[in-house]
Design a protein around this nucleic acid. Structure first.
Lengths: 343, 343
DNA sequence: CGATTTTTGAGGTGCGCACCTCAAAACTTG
DNA sequence: CAAGTTTTGAGGTGCGCACCTCAAAAATCG
């Protein structure tokens, strides 16, 4: 039979009240007794029954995802995943919300985070572009006792918060390797398109991509990043111009999760000329384009996994437990037409 | 406040005892009352508190992984993952075991499964080669009330059991696509090596691989499968012979999770000639070879994910819950040197 | 109709723990 | 040493549910 707190009290030669004080880190416990209990825990292999703890505490956890206000397909997918998790966790006394806020002004974001309080929220997963204000606000959030997760964003990594997402340098490097090998020996240029190069994740992907192209594929040259700023007209224009100026373009690499605008522009200009196309993130658009063989490979991070991972981490931190690292690593996936699996 | 069974009883206009009978599917409940309760559940949004259920039932779950008795590195990794999960689930009153049995004789395997009883075991995850005897034994196991999972194995899929693992045809197709594109336009032959082609998963991978090579890369020819039977000398011999007879070999595809023996033979024979090499499963060997750029790509299914998935499914089935399908799909991963992440 | 069977209700107990109170014991300190 | 402070013990309550018993009510049957 599995030992209970009563067995533990007996084994440690103390009362249940003292065991309770030690287990829940309450004040007024002498070192002597604390070690006696700790030793007994080891000796009899005591493990707290999480079900009993949850029941007795009768606490509802409150977690929030703070996401950008955007119409991005990847974001839509992300939100669908959060909603899914929300339903699944309702049974476990865990409330999950999504807040979409404008990420344009870092001060606004920081202000938003500043308003979040520990006794209203247990954990927050934030996806916001890098800025000192936001970083500061996050640090203060953590100091107030709210467990924070840096979520898929191009933030500089904080010590006091967990990060959920891929290593963007490695993701870019993976894109570079796939691009280089898929293109084959043929020399030429690679067009690189991003929504903006202000974001840290775009920069890191670009660096990773270039590191591989330069080192392993000297016959290829990656062109300066084109920035669409999410503007369709602008995208059409600069992409058309670039393709005309570089008739020896053999591949296109889209850094951002929004690939529809730039790739539509490419295909409009390019007609039937064969280009190797690499994009990021699985979306209805990229899925369809993979199926149609208009995109050759997609480098992705599974949004469902990311959401669940963030939730598990926030939950673990709230319970003062260490999350299981090996389970929480988000993989850099390589999606081809062949391994695109549907449910 | 979240509704409890008491609220539910009140809302349905019945007693707690009746609510209990309905919730736990006990006998002697009239249809009229059952629907009244079901309707009230919908109306007030009642959700059982799993912590309270777990505590009241005070049941320990017992799950077992039945794996082949082999020295395979992938298997070792698998066992390490099970052990990890075992420790993690100890808190949740869940006992996890591993049994390694000889898979040579299907009768023996069937006999082993026949000895497993419902009141000693809640769920079993079985990794065994396809055979009618084993399939029958699995069906009977399920009929006895033990939740069975077909685990990563080349079994024909049963209706009454869940499957955890990738679609091996798709995995082979992915390998084919990567091989074809990595090789480039250069014509030549692809050597295909397996431990044995008796296993269903090897056959499926081969079919998937060939389907892509034939359809999309007509300048490539994949040679008949070589079978090593796990014998190092034999592997050396047949591989050496094949390479000599086919000097225009441009790639090697190793179907099995054990890639060390065949690839060592290849490298011994081949010297410095550049070959594109594709293998399956992440192991210390394949990891190192990817790092050294002696393997170009590895097609993998994450063993940790597979183990956790099998456990979640067995747990859900034991509780008469439906597992969350989207979470349990095992992905076909493409591993390159660039996206090999370490902890 | 009464006799039998089925269905429902009332109530209790315990799962393992958190959290609380109050008093007793053990240390400090001047 | 007394007065204060800190530490420990004893005991109780409740979290939400499963599982049990026994009696009462309702439905079914001959």
């Amino acid at each position: 039979m599995r030992p209970t707190t009563k067995d533990l009290a007996e084994a440690a030669g103390v009362s249940l009240a003292t065991v309770d004080r030690v287990l829940n880190e309450r004040p007024n416990v002498s070192n002597k007794v604390a070690t006696k209990v700790a030793e007994a825990i080891e000796r009899i292999g005591f493990v707290r029954n999480p079900a009993a703890v949850a029941l007795a505490r009768n606490k509802t956890y409150r977690f929030r995802f703070v996401l950008p206000k955007s119409g991005d397909q990847y974001l839509a997918e992300l939100i669908a995943r959060v909603t899914e998790a929300k339903d699944a966790l309702r049974a476990d006394s865990t409330e999950v919300e999504v807040a979409q806020i404008a990420m344009g002004d870092p001060h606004q974001v920081a202000k938003y985070l500043t308003c979040i309080d520990h006794d209203a929220m247990d954990g927050v997963a934030v996806m916001a572009p890098e800025s000192p204000q936001v970083r500061d606000a996050l640090v203060r959030l953590v100091e107030r006792g709210v467990k924070a997760v840096q979520f898929l964003s191009g933030q500089e990594r904080l010590e006091s918060a967990d990060y959920v997402g891929v290593d963007n340098f490695a993701a870019g490097a993976t894109a570079g390797k796939i691009a280089g090998r898929f293109i084959g020996g043929q020399p030429g240029k690679i067009m690189v398109v991003a929504e903006t190069m202000m974001a840290l994740d775009s920069i890191q992907r670009r660096l990773g991509f270039d590191s591989i192209i330069n080192a392993q594929f000297p016959h290829l040259e990656s062109l300066p990043s084109l920035e669409t700023y999410g503007d369709e007209k602008r995208a059409d224009l600069i992409i058309q111009r670039t393709l005309q100026h570089n008739p020896d373009t053999v591949a296109v690499y889209v850094l951002s999760s929004e690939a529809r605008v730039p790739l539509t522009a490419v295909w409009n200009t390019q007609g039937a000329r064969a280009l190797t196309v690499i994009a990021h993130e699985r979306t209805p658009f990229s899925e369809q384009a993979l199926m149609d063989e208009r995109i050759d490979a997609v480098i992705a991070q599974d949004p469902g996994h990311a959401v669940r991972s963030a939730l598990r981490i926030m939950r673990a931190r709230s319970d003062h437990r260490e999350p299981l690292a090996s389970q929480e690593r988000i993989r850099i996936e390589v999606l081809l037409k062949e391994n695109l699996q549907f449910e």
